[in-house]
Design a protein around this nucleic acid. Sequence first.
DNA 1: ACCTGAACACCGTTCAAGT
DNA 2: ACCTGAACACCGTTCAAGT
Lengths: 219, 219
Amino acid sequence: MMGKLTREAVVERALEIGDAEGLQAVTIRRLAQELGVTPMALYWHFKNKEQLVVGMADHLIEGFEITPDGSRPWREQLRELVGRLVRMLRRHPCAEAVLEEVDKMEVPAFLRVWDTALGLTLRAGFGARESCLITRYILQGAIALAGGSVEHRRCGPEGHAEHVRLKRVRFQSLPPDTYPNIVRMAVPLTERGDAELYDTFGVDLLLSGIESMAARLDG
Amino acid sequence: MMGKLTREAVVERALEIGDAEGLQAVTIRRLAQELGVTPMALYWHFKNKEQLVVGMADHLIEGFEITPDGSRPWREQLRELVGRLVRMLRRHPCAEAVLEEVDKMEVPAFLRVWDTALGLTLRAGFGARESCLITRYILQGAIALAGGSVEHRRCGPEGHAEHVRLKRVRFQSLPPDTYPNIVRMAVPLTERGDAELYDTFGVDLLLSGIESMAARLDG
DNA sequence: ACCTGAACACCGTTCAAGT
DNA sequence: ACCTGAACACCGTTCAAGT
C-alpha cells in the first residue's frame, strides 16, 4: 500500500488503537487489517505480541531526555522525571495498561528512567535496598496515580461526559449506609478533567514521602 | 462429582490457578475442566468472565474487617488498612493482576475499603478533591508496591530461585555505560524475599507522604 | 434450578511457500 | 528481506435443549 510497513508505523498504529479503544482492542489481526496487510506480516517485525507491546512501551517512554546532572539537587531532578511520566500518562490513555502488562526489564527506555531514578535516590543518601524499593515505589506510584486520572476515549468527548455521568449515578445509587462517604463524594470522585491537581498535589504527594524519609536519614 | 458447583468453589479454584500460574492461566475452559464440568456450567454462576474476576477480587479483599473507630487516630487506622492490603497482596501472587484488571467499582469489598479510607482522610482535614486523590494514591500505591515484591510461583520454590538468578544475570549483562546503576545494583534489585522491608519501610513511605501533606494543612 | 452439546466468531502462532 | 495462505490450538459466548 502507501509506504512501507515499518516497526515504528506498526507501533504508532497500535498506540492509536489503544488510546482510542483500550489496549484489549489492540490485536494482531485487527492491527494487520488496519495496516492493509496480512496478520503474519507483523511476525516479521515482531517475534510475538508480547514484543509488540514492549515496542509500544518503549515508544511511549522514549525521548524523555533525562540528563543526570550532578550539580542540581536530586529532589528537583526526581520531580522533573516524575512530572514527565505523569504528563505522558495523561496524554496516552492506554499507557497505564501498556506499562502494567509489559515486562519492564524488556523496555530499554524504561530501564533508562529506572537507572536515572536509582542514581538520584542513591545520591540522596538511601541504602541500596531502600533505593530499590523507593524507585519501584515512585515509578509504579506515578503510573498508578496518573493512570487513575484518565478515562478511555471510547467515543470522543461527548461519550466521555456521558460515561462520567453514568459512573456518578452508579456511585450515588449505592446503599448509603454501607458506603456513606462514596455516596456523599460521588461528584468529586468522578471529576477527572482536573489535570492541575494531579500535576501539583499528586506529584507533591509522591515526592514528599521520599523527602520525609530522606530527612530522617539526615536527622 | 464430589460436592456441588458453587460460586465460592469456582472463585477459590480460580485463585489457586492464578496464584500458581498467573492470571492469564485462569480461563473459563481450563477452570471448567479442573472442576470436572462443562465450560457453559460456569455461565450459570457468573454472567461472564469479567464477573468471575470481580468475584476473585471480592474474595481477596473480603473479611478485612475494617472498623472505623472515631477514637483512634486516623494515621494509625490508615496504616492498619494499608498493612492488611499489603500482606494480602503478598500472600496471593495473582492479587495485583486481579485488582488491576477488574473494574473496582464492581467489587463491594473494595468499595468498603475505599469508603473507609475516604472517611479517614476527610477526618485528617483534607478537602474533598484532595481526599479523592489521596485515597486513590494510597490504595493504588499499596497494590503497586506490594505487587512488586511478588514473583509468580510457577514451579515451586526451586523454580523461583532459578528465576531470580536468571533475572539477575540479565541485569548484570546489560551494557554498563548506559545502565550503570542497574548493573551495579543487580543483586539488591532482584532480592525480593525481603518481606520485612516492605511491611515497615514500604508502608512508612506510602504514609509519610500523606502525613507530611497533612502537616502542611495544620501549619 | 442447574447443567450439557453444538456452534460461532474471535484469538495468537507455526510452517511452508511465494517474490 | 519481506510478505502470503492455509492450518492449528486455543479463547469467550450464545442458544436451544436436556434433567
